[in-house]
Amino acid sequence: MDPEELHLQVLRLLDHNPNLSQRQIARELDLSVGKTNYAVRAVISRGWVKAHNFSNAPDKRRYLYRLTPAGVSEKAQLAYRHLQRKRAEHQRLMEEIEALRAEVEEAQVEAEPTERPAGPQG
């Protein structure tokens, strides 16, 4: 997963559930907790997310993650760029599928037995 896609996925998760732990985010994205920590710190350092400590939580490491206005805007821009990449990928796949389809049809035509002319019936 490239960094832009990772940031987009983190922003999406935190937008939908701001009180996810990094362990839960890691599980959702199928990442290590270390890589998740790196990604969460990246979106925080860019000012896209604010982390607020739960003062009454028994585990003082729990945070509430809120997207900032810049984070909401960046999430939309990341989503747009992700969509553009996926559309281009889709177009390339469709072209490859068409080329393969033509290749298969050509191979089938070549493999068909040729008809023999009708000879004398004996």
Rank of each mutant, 00 (worst) to 15 (best):
V49K: 05
D59Q: 04
R62W: 13
R41H: 07
R41P: 06
L31R: 08
D30R: 03
A26T: 03
R23C: 06
A79E: 05
D15P: 04
N37D: 15
S45N: 14
Y38M: 14
P69G: 07
V43W: 06
L64Y: 13
V72P: 03
A79C: 08
A39C: 11
Q77Y: 06
V49A: 06
L31N: 01
R23F: 14
A51M: 10
H52F: 07
G47E: 05
N37M: 15
N19F: 11
I25C: 04
Y80L: 12
Q77V: 10
N56V: 03
L29P: 03
D30V: 11
G71K: 13
L29T: 01
T36I: 06
P18R: 06
H16V: 00
A57T: 07
F54S: 11
Y65G: 04
L31P: 06
R66C: 03
A76P: 11
V43H: 02
A76Y: 05
R27Q: 15
N37H: 15
D59K: 09
S73D: 10
S55D: 15
H16T: 09
V43R: 06
E74M: 13
Y63C: 05
G47M: 01
P58R: 14
N19M: 14
N17K: 01
S45W: 15
T68R: 10
R62N: 02
N37W: 14
L67N: 03
K50I: 09
R46G: 13
R46E: 13
E28G: 02
A76E: 03
A70D: 07
P69I: 08
R23Y: 00
V43F: 12
S21R: 14
N37A: 13
V43S: 14
S55W: 04
L78K: 04
R46S: 15
K50V: 14
R41E: 09
H52L: 07
F54Q: 08
